[in-house]
Design a binder for these strands. Structure first.
Lengths: 192, 192
DNA sequence: TTCCATTTGTCGGATAGACAACACATTGAT
DNA sequence: ATCAATGTGTTGTCTATCCGACAAATGGAA
């Protein structure tokens, strides 16, 4: 969408910064990581950091988006459609992501992380819906994507609150009938 | 010695180029590797290659020197002196290096490789000798380093010609008495 | 041989990144 | 409260790298 150019230098430098940040995140808490730490680890100048990112929160935002995006793209949603299999994969990817984060001590940034997850989910849901119904209008798909992203994210929160007693694959299974067929079939008892 | 500056960009790019070259060397013969191949693998511009290296032979030279130098520095010769142990280590490093090269197909460049090995050996022998006899003159050490570098390299060639029947550690052992004490003690039977 | 494609080495203009210096918080120890 | 130390964000200058283009060399196929 927004790739007018792709200077190898900026790709390299952005990757360096993000990798260094993720590396440091495994060693110390987010609040203890300074811009200097990151740029030292990445062997770049501190001023260069500010050339690419507003501040360290901007980096947190983009780095987590990147990680989650890679996880989600592993499903190669471009080719697959929105069905039981892909929804399950996506839900598992979200719970995996949150589990990875909880062991990496980004406490106090739950709301930021929640927003990032929902944004990424909305993006891929929207893409998949558009692809699946190429001829129809786009506007309704936007709304569907919003609801799906909040719904799936909420389900992951509930799953965590239930102390992760069941496997994510099992947990999301009961939501599939509604997600696929909506409310009516449920009320009419058409779905088991 | 010659480090006026150390721009991180230069270090990064040189390492990228060398690593890509060594990577490609494992897949295809040297004569089939083009500058374009290397810069593509390294994700840098082709013009940047010529900013750092005269041509691909200059790269071969510096890359091999670098690899050998790393092998040799693992002995941390700066701290150790020239004795049976360090000489054995150095000889083993040389034979290891040649074995690694023979499996990487740099055929037709034996003379280049031989020169590189001797140059590196001469450098470290000279450093060790100067450090070991800090108060004396430097000139005789230069000559000693030259002879040692040719001698040790020659020994490694002979070892290869003998089809590597014995371990390098064993092979070089018989040279230690002469190297340490010179000709006279041998003639006088002072050394077993 | 001629033709065609690829590689090589070099150039000039544009830009990302390095570096030093700066003012301004924030923190912590005395 | 004060001072020193450290982190933040910005600016200006200089340089390494990018990119496109070029002529010359190389090499293989017709």
């Amino acid at each position: 969408m927004t790739q007018p150019k792709a200077d190898p230098r900026v790709l390299r430098t952005r990757k360096l910064i993000m990798d260094s940040f993720i590396e440091l995140s495994g060693k110390q808490e987010f609040k203890d990581i300074t811009v200097k730490d990151i740029t030292t680890e990445a062997n770049i100048n501190r001023a260069t950091f500010y050339y690419h990112f507003e501040d360290i929160y901007d980096l947190l935002d983009k780095a987590l988006s990147e990680v989650l995006s890679v996880n989600l793209n592993a499903i190669d949603f471009e080719k697959s459609e929105l069905n039981e299999t892909s929804i399950t994969h996506i839900f598992v990817a979200v719970t995996d992501f949150q589990r990875a984060l909880s062991s990496r001590c980004h406490r106090g940034y739950d709301e930021t992380i929640a927003r990032i997850i929902r944004e990424q989910l909305e993006i891929i849901f929207y893409r998949m819906l558009r692809q699946q119904h190429a001829t129809e209008e786009y506007e309704p798909h936007k709304m569907t994507a919003v609801i799906l992203s909040w719904g799936i994210y909420g389900a992951s929160v509930e799953w965590r609150r239930d102390r992760m007693e069941s496997l994510p694959e099992q947990y999301i299974k009961s939501a599939i009938p509604f997600l696929m067929s909506g409310i009516e079939p449920l009320a009419q008892g058409r779905i088991s």
